[in-house]
Amino acid sequence: MSRLYMIRHGKPSSTWGDEAAADPGLDEAGRAQAEAAADALMALPEGERPTRVLSSPLRRCRETAQPFADRLGVAVEIDPRFGEIPTPAALTEAERGPWLRQVFTGRWTEAKGDLDYDAWRRGIASALADFGGWAVFSHFVAINAAVTTLMGKEEVLAFRPDHCAITVFEVGAEGLRLVELGPEAQTQVL
């Protein structure tokens, strides 16, 4: 068995509805959170510490991953499967927030859009099984996708991971197993 750590990005410089919301970087608090997450990951025992770093392609995740990658002396690898939940193409940025709020209060099978969101969430959990020994920097909904799949829950939200919360999984012959949820916080997601 090997450990896999899924880390929510740090606090972004803007949120839904802001002009820069499409791909914001981190604000000052988010940069401090990224440094603290890197410290926490480096403090893990050597056999449990991730040796590779994977990130969503979005800037806030890449910027959160970079301090840990720098400490390890490795490059941040990008995988779009761990990006944000795909928003229906027909929605404007202003419509995205209300759509997400509706999705967050329901079940995966009820999410309306351009794809099968229940299959999307199972795909995230399945893909994670290939990343034992990695730190994967991702998003609120993608982390919930993995967690709800492993917990057998149909609701979109199983918990509210704080910025830079570290959720721990194990990867073994039987696949992916949830070990520990990261810290929760009140968040502006809903």
Rank of each mutant, 00 (worst) to 15 (best):
S14R: 02
S14D: 02
R177T: 03
I166C: 05
L150E: 07
I166A: 06
N144Q: 12
M6F: 04
P24R: 06
R96Y: 07
E170I: 03
A90V: 05
A127I: 02
P98C: 08
A21D: 03
A65S: 14
A21N: 03
I143M: 10
A37G: 12
F82H: 02
R121W: 08
L54G: 06
A145K: 00
W99E: 03
G113T: 08
L41S: 05
P67K: 15
G182Y: 07
F68L: 07
I85Q: 09
P24S: 05
V53E: 04
L44M: 08
A36P: 07
A32I: 04
A146S: 01
D70H: 15
A34M: 03
A173I: 14
G113A: 06
A20M: 07
T105G: 12
S2P: 06
D70R: 15
E184G: 15
R177N: 11
S13E: 04
D114M: 10
T148K: 04
L150K: 09
V74S: 12
S56A: 05
R96I: 05
Y5R: 01
E77C: 12
S56R: 01
D114I: 12
M42F: 13
T87A: 08
R122Q: 07
A65D: 09
M151A: 09
R59M: 10
W16G: 00
G113P: 03
A36M: 08
L181G: 12
G182K: 03
Q102F: 08
P24N: 08
E77H: 15
C61Q: 08
T187E: 11
E93D: 08
L72Q: 13
C61A: 15
L157H: 15
A142E: 07
N144W: 02
A40Y: 09
R160Q: 14
P12H: 06
I85V: 13
A38F: 10
T187V: 13
G83M: 05
E48R: 15
G25A: 01
E170V: 00
E170T: 13
M1T: 15
A75L: 12
V53P: 00
V76R: 12
W120E: 04
D79P: 12
Q102A: 13
R49H: 08
A185K: 15
R3H: 09
R59W: 03
A22P: 05
T64S: 12
V74R: 13
E170K: 13
F68H: 11
S56C: 02
E155G: 11
G73F: 09
E28C: 00
A32M: 02
I78E: 02
A145V: 00
R101E: 01
L44D: 07
I124E: 02
G10E: 06
A37H: 06
